[in-house]
Design a protein around this nucleic acid. Structure first.
Length: 900
RNA sequence: AGGCGUGUAGCUCAGGGGGAGAGCACUACCCUGACACGGUAGUGGUCAAGAGUUCAAAUCUCUUCACGCCUACCA
């Protein structure tokens, strides 16, 4: 054997990762070519925000996508993974505004144009972070096709879609009650409002009515009363019959508002009387429309009271609430205050309380689009994985409301609409107009609003491929294959892509949606900066490497909703990386040893080690080789079906088990006698299969652990090139070898049986035993004879004999009963039997119990009649086995007692 | 309020009508010539509770409890 170490003792990931990634990228291995053959396999990355830094969610998302991409690339598909970033309207604008503020500037001082320039500058400087971080994870995206939602091409797509939706009457502008964020100073859509449960108060306030007792109204928001334009009661509420047609006085004002009747009012809630504030409550808005009530803005876009609030004008809404409660109380208009649990809407960006108010905004008419999207899922054109998300999806699509798409921001796609100052006509157009097409006036102004960020993300699957141009990419790669994302953005993004894709392209945007869990901290809490429970993926990458991290994420990516990430798990898998590394180190040493020792042995190796074994034909001969090939074949099958069915956890698990517990623990041990033995031909043959199997194992592992596998490939394959573009192993039927599997299982049985005895009786590993195997099966006898030396080593024995009859049993020996025979291990003079007696008794009790249960079962006529035959006979066999085992335990007990 | 989901070993989870599983952790022994980031053998669970269907239930059904999440126009 070779003395020098062909490899370092451990994988130096921090050095290897950047080197390997750079090599892949430089060699253009990520770049897709539409002209090449192969079924297209396409993923568009969920574009991270430009402002973003890599977090756990990205890490998981990207790892799973990269597994799919690498797998399909190796499988020979024409594979494309489009990376890119989202301009993230509010988020980015907030970041840059904050930066300005630290310089004592505001965006208004700067002006729109300058401000937008600043954002672009910011993007240039800091926007590349996330792309670099994705590279560290090993993401094999086609960076030559990287896109940004504000790119020229994508902006063109946005404009084209907006205009054509407008032309199809699917976009309209109107004055409606919308969700306003007073901090971000913009409208937000319904789903951008999150509901937070709060302990609040319900205030009972008196509205005076002439000649009648005051009408008491319950409200959580007294400060909005300055916008009240009615008080409503339920028409069937007898308590308020007298108030019909009367007027009530809004407290702290002299304003009189009508008392109206509306079914919406819940008689049970509060006093059964509702103040109607159409400009600040969506329901009141609807009531007002039914009753033709006026609208009064009481709160402005900064959350301050308007002139409608009299002396409170200009003051903040929360402050006014406090002050006016005092005033109401003073004037005897506050009846009582009750505690109330309810949900309050907050901005998903900044968590400020949303102020519903009336405003002129642009909307997308979603109902027809949603119907088409639902249909695509219902008829199976788009699959959702796991399927149970479909129900949630349908639920939402069935109850969808129009989508407010205009935002009062500067950073984003400005709406292509021009308002004529002369005739008032609004023009929506693909080209910037210079005059009003209606009245020819030059006095036209562009609408100031920009579009919701999610509008452009909704076009992502086709805008990134070049649409509206008729590109080759679009033709070849649309629809995309799979969308991989967290379920938290099904509505924000997934549904919108479906609607936009179906409408614009006339085809689904992707064939499958894989929804993975959300990464939580070990307590199951959402990771957030404010909670301080964020685990930084970059830190894990630094400490444990990308492969271990990716493997841990993959192994935990089941179909549950949460993935509670445990760093310990990553540490565990970093040991797995090490295990693979060392297995390869072993193989490499053996291969090099062989090439040195066998120099000139042309009859074995042909042209040296790279081709070693080709001369032996395609069939492994030695039992370990036959076995490992057969087992590998099974694993290839498991791996392929796991990946294709998006069972990432099973994929990882299958490889972990096979690599560690079969390939390393057994195969490498089983072949050692051959590798160290005198038969050079046998050695060369086994080396061939060792190398081949290891290389194939590297291929199987590559999608999840790209770095260590690529590194080992370069050391081991001897053929240059890159593992990442090697063909993925296939399930080959001629590799199946059940008899080899059965025989190796026999070797394992014997070994484990003796090891168990050693351990049970507390034998020191130095103590040698001399077991006797009883079996009449000639095949197994031959097997044991052939592997005598190996077995001695594996079980720590000095002698192994075969017996044919029970009466050959040595005195004072422990016995293990197996399917095909029995093993006796003589213990005379070797042990202290005191503790063993208890253990055996315990096992005997348990067995007696089980035997009893099995007997009862077999005595049940219904069971015999109705249970399938194979189940019944299985039970009989089990019973028999248990009885035999019990007998042997009893014998063991005798032995132990005898030794005492 | 409705919908969805979860509850299996100390932890993280897989499985899913007929023998309770994995990883980590833990215990004992072992530095045996790839790996101590290793090896061998183990400990540990009324599969949340109750009822039902069945020859057979952790698995299917119903109820209850606990915990999540999503949706929602009780001010």
């Amino acid at each position: 054997m070779c003395q020098k170490d062909p490899l370092d003792k451990n994988f130096n990931f921090s050095k290897a990762e950047p080197r390997l990634y750079e090599a892949w990228e430089k060699n253009g291995l990520f770049v897709a070519d539409p002209e090449k053959p192969g079924d297209p396999f396409v993923i568009v990355i969920p574009p991270p925000n430009v402002t973003g830094n890599l977090h756990m969610g990205h890490a998981l998302d990207v790892t799973l996508q990269d597994i799919l991409i690498r797998y399909h690339r190796m499988k020979g598909d024409n594979t494309l993974w489009v990376p890119g970033m989202d301009h993230a309207g509010i988020a980015t604008q907030n970041v840059v505004e904050r930066e300005l503020r630290s310089q004592g500037l505001t965006k208004d001082e700067l002006g729109r144009e300058k401000f937008v320039e600043r954002v672009w500058e910011w993007k240039k400087t800091y926007g590349g972070n996330i792309a670099r971080q994705l590279r560290r994870l090993g993401a094999s995206c086609d960076w030559s096709r990287e896109r940004f939602t504000m790119d020229e091409g994508l902006s063109k797509a946005v404009r084209e879609v907006f205009v054509s939706l407008y032309e199809d009457d699917l976009i309209y502008r109107g004055q409606y009650i919308i969700n306003w964020c007073p901090r971000c100073h913009t409208a937000v859509s319904d789903i951008e409002v999150e509901h937070e449960a709060r302990k609040d108060k319900l205030y009972y306030i008196k509205y005076e009515v002439k000649d009648l007792p005051p009408l008491v109204v319950a409200t959580t928001r007294p400060e909005t009363c300055f916008g009240d334009t009615a008080v409503a009661v339920n028409p069937n509420d007898p308590r308020y019959g007298l108030y019909r047609g009367r007027e009530a006085k809004v407290p702290l004002t002299e304003r009189l508002v009508p008392v109206i009747l509306d079914d919406y009012v819940d008689r049970e809630f509060g006093t059964g009387a509702l103040k109607v504030t159409p400009a600040h409550d969506p329901n009141d808005f609807l009531i007002a429309r039914r009753h033709d009530l006026p609208f009064i803005m009481a709160i402005d876009e900064s959350g301050k009271l308007t002139q409608a609030a009299g002396h409170y004008q200009g003051e903040d809404r929360d402050l006014v609430r406090k002050k006016m409660l005092g005033e109401l109380d003073e004037k005897g208009l506050l009846e009582k205050i009750e505690p109330l649990d309810h949900a309050v809407g907050v901005c998903y960006r900044c968590r400020s309380v949303i102020e519903p108010l009336i405003s002129k905004q642009w909307f997308v008419k979603t109902a027809p689009l949603a119907e088409a999207a639902s249909l695509a899922v219902k008829d199976g054109r788009i699959k959702m994985i796991p399927v149970n998300w479909e129900k949630t999806f349908f639920d939402w699509m069935d109850n969808i409301r129009d989508w407010c798409v205009s935002r009062q921001l500067w950073w984003g796609h400005q709406i292509p609409a021009w308002h004529c100052q002369n005739c008032g006509r609004t023009t929506v157009s693909r080209e910037d107009p210079d005059k009003c097409p209606n009245c020819q006036s030059n006095d036209i102004v562009r609408d100031e609003d920009v579009l919701d960020t999610w509008f452009s993300s909704g076009l992502w699957p086709f805008s990134t491929l070049g649409w509206p141009e008729k590109t080759r990419d679009l033709e070849r790669y649309y629809p995309t294959s799979v969308l991989v994302t967290g379920f938290d953005i099904i509505f924000f993004w997934v549904a919108r892509m479906m609607m936009m894709g179906l409408k614009t392209m006339g085809d689904i945007p992707f064939r499958a949606v894989v929804l993975h869990p959300l990464v939580r901290d070990p307590q199951g809490q959402k990771m957030s900066k404010s909670k301080g429970n964020v685990i930084d993926p970059l830190e894990i990458l630094d400490n444990l490497g990308a492969d271990a991290f990716r493997f841990a994420l993959t192994a935990q990516a089941g179909q549950a909703r949460d993935l509670k990430l445990d760093v310990k798990r990553v540490e565990g898998y970093s040991k797995f990386v090490n295990k693979i590394w060392n297995a390869a180190r072993f193989a490499l040493a053996a291969l090099e040893g062989q090439s040195e020792a066998d120099t000139g042995q042309a009859e074995n190796a042909g042209q040296g080690q790279a081709d070693t074994g080709k001369a032996f034909g395609l069939k492994p001969e030695a039992l370990p080789d036959r076995w490992v090939r057969s087992r590998l074949r099974a694993v290839v099958g498991e791996v392929r079906s796991a990946v294709e069915g998006f069972h990432f956890d099973r994929y990882a698990e299958a490889l972990y088990q096979f690599t560690w517990y079969e390939f390393c623990d057994w195969y490498l041990e089983l072949i050692k006698p051959i590798l160290y033995g005198p038969d050079k031909v046998a050695r060369a043959k086994t080396l061939y299969w060792l190398k081949l199997t290891l290389l194939e194992l590297l291929k199987l592992l590559h999608p999840v652990m790209p770095f260590v596998t690529e590194e080992l490939w370069s050391k081991l394959s001897g053929q240059g090139g890159y593992l990442m573009v090697e063909p993925f192993p296939e399930v080959l039927d001629n590799q199946d070898d059940p008899s080899a599997e059965k025989l190796v299982r026999c070797l394992m049985d014997v070994t484990r049986a003796v090891r168990q005895v050693r351990s049970d009786f507390g034998l020191n590993p130095i103590v040698k035993v001399a077991p006797v195997v009883l079996t009449k099966n000639p095949e197994i006898r031959a097997l044991i004879e052939a592997n005598g030396q190996l077995l001695l080593k594996l079980m720590g024995a000095e002698k192994l004999s075969l017996a044919e009859n029970f009466n050959e049993r040595p005195k004072d020996s422990a016995s293990n009963v197996l399917d095909w025979g029995e093993i006796w291990t003589p213990l005379t003079g070797l042990i202290d039997p005191a503790s063993e007696e208890a253990r055996l008794n315990k096992e005997a009790d348990k067995l007696a119990n089980d035997i009893n249960a099995a007997n009862n079962k077999l005595a049940n006529p219904d069971y015999l009649k109705k249970a399938p035959e194979e189940i019944v006979s299985e039970t009989r066999e089990k019973l028999e086995a248990m009885e035999t085992r019990l007998a042997s335990i009893k014998r063991a007990l005798d032995v132990v007692k005898g030794l005492n």
